[in-house]
Simulated assay, not measured.
Amino acid sequence: MGPALAERIELMRPQIVRFRADLAFFQEVNGQERPGQPRALAALEQLLAGTNLAGATLVSARGEDGGVFAERNLVIATRSPVLQSSS
């Protein structure tokens, strides 16, 4: 088992802040289970909090239930409007 989420966020968030990006691509993102709801990108949302991408639209492939996959999601985080998505 690797480092805890909080430890990973502590290492990665300063890099995202430094980029000041309005658009970012992430790979190998895990989805988190939520009781009674589809799986979500909650850990990525935590990582992006406090950065220029806080509250950004997250676009990723989704399953039939509307949730993201458990592992290996490719995600686009953008502050720009998303006009169309197949997710």
Rank of each mutant, 00 (worst) to 15 (best):
S87V: 01
R20Q: 15
V29L: 03
F26G: 05
Q27W: 02
L47V: 10
A40Y: 07
G50W: 06
A4N: 11
R72Y: 09
E7R: 01
G2I: 07
G2M: 08
A24M: 15
Q32E: 14
L47I: 09
R79G: 06
L44R: 13
L5W: 14
R72C: 04
I9G: 13
M1S: 15
Q27L: 02
E10G: 15
L74N: 12
G55W: 12
A21T: 04
G55Y: 11
R39H: 10
T51D: 04
G31D: 04
S87N: 15
F69K: 04
L48S: 08
P14H: 10
V59C: 01
R39T: 12
E71M: 05
A6Y: 13
I76D: 03
A56L: 05
L47W: 08
T51K: 01
Q37Y: 09
A21Q: 08
T57V: 07
S86H: 13
A49T: 14
F25E: 03
E28I: 01
P38G: 08
R79I: 02
D22L: 05
Q46V: 00
V82N: 11
L74W: 05
V59E: 03
R39S: 06
Q15S: 09
A24Q: 01
E10Y: 13
E28N: 12
A21L: 03
L11C: 02
E71D: 06
L58H: 04
E7G: 07
A61S: 13
S60F: 00
I9L: 07
V68A: 05
V82W: 11
A77Y: 08
T57G: 08
G50E: 10
A54R: 07
F69Q: 07
D65N: 09
S60E: 00
G63V: 00
S86R: 13
M1F: 14
V17G: 02
A43G: 09
I76S: 05
M12V: 11
Q46F: 00
Q15C: 05
E28L: 04
Q15F: 12
G63I: 00
I16F: 03
F19L: 08
G67S: 06
V29I: 13
I76T: 09
E71K: 06
L11I: 05
L53Q: 03
A61N: 07
E28T: 03
T57K: 15
P38Y: 08
E10W: 11
V59D: 06
A49D: 14
L41E: 14
A21S: 14
L48C: 10
S87Y: 09
Q46E: 15
F19A: 13
V82Y: 14
E33G: 06
L58N: 01
G2W: 11
N30A: 14
A4F: 15
Q27T: 06
G63P: 01
S85T: 15
V59W: 03
Q32A: 12
S60P: 00
D65G: 01
G66R: 04
R62Y: 01
